[in-house]
Write a protein that binds this DNA or RNA. Structure first.
Lengths: 142, 142
DNA sequence: ATAATCTAATTAGCCATGCTAAATAATAGC
DNA sequence: GCTATTATTTAGCATGGCTAATTAGATTAT
């Protein structure tokens, strides 16, 4: 572990922190809260799943996810129904309305990114693409 | 706006989303919640300020920040006192204990980053550094 | 000097989002 | 059939978000 990497980690930590805050502000412009938006995105991009699976994906307790899903269902962004094979399980599925909602929210983020990417050189865009690839590795590898 | 940039924005959005989730898990290992941790970091790195200023920094209402600061003060991570020049204003300042707390929390994040950076080539590290610089620009420029 | 207006924080009430614990119903294993 | 395990829901609490109202202090206008 070199001191250069400590310095780079510090700079990266700061950048990711500030970027996350900025993205949060974009997300906060949506009508629903962060927990609902995040759970909805798991459903939209990952497909239907049981309440417990969704809770595990989001790393919260089933009780918490129960509340979040209540909110999504109330807003007609998702539906819940008993699993066909196991009456104890509840399957959660995104609605068309929820899918459209997510698309709008995602588009707001993409607009932020593309506005900035459009101003970059090919070399800079290449660096961004490389970072995205590395970050994905980090998250997958733990 | 090119379709390549839309694709890159999509990939970057996904990477930042997943990375943020991962960082959140690291932060969640701390005893205090996100709002308190975030407010504390503003005080540690940006210095003492009034309650309203802190609320504005965190983009929440003064009433919300009032509650968050109550929590920090109760845990002795920050102090509050009436401003010397204006009796309506409350100044919030981090304690030594709070400063140490923040350092521990930050170190947990840096450990995550350095563990991954240590495995990168010089070229890859250079891309990460470039991204950090760009992201900072994006956040500053709005 | 006094009154009117503005400002900063606090209180009050409500809702969302976290948790643990307990309860209920369904399923699995013996 | 009975016991143990599993999935969800309910209950209670704390944190963190909001708006509205209140209180006290500061500034401005008369």
């Amino acid at each position: 572990m070199s001191s250069d990497n400590i310095e780079l980690a510090t700079v990266l930590n700061s950048a990711v922190t500030h970027l996350s805050r900025r993205i949060r502000r974009i997300d906060d412009a949506q009508d629903i809260g962060r927990a609902r938006l995040s759970a909805l995105s798991v459903l939209v991009f990952g497909g239907p799943r049981t309440l417990s699976e969704l809770a595990a994906d989001e790393m919260v307790s089933p009780a918490t996810m129960h509340h979040v899903v209540n909110g999504l269902v109330k807003l007609r962004l998702a539906t819940r129904r008993t699993d066909a094979d196991d009456k104890r399980k509840t399957r959660i599925e995104v609605t068309l309305r929820g899918r459209q909602y997510m698309e709008d929210a995602r588009q707001a983020r993409l607009d932020f990114y593309t506005a900035h990417l459009d101003k970059l050189s090919a070399k800079e865009r290449s660096a961004v693409a490389e970072f995205a690839r590395l970050a994905d590795d980090w998250v997958r590898g733990g």
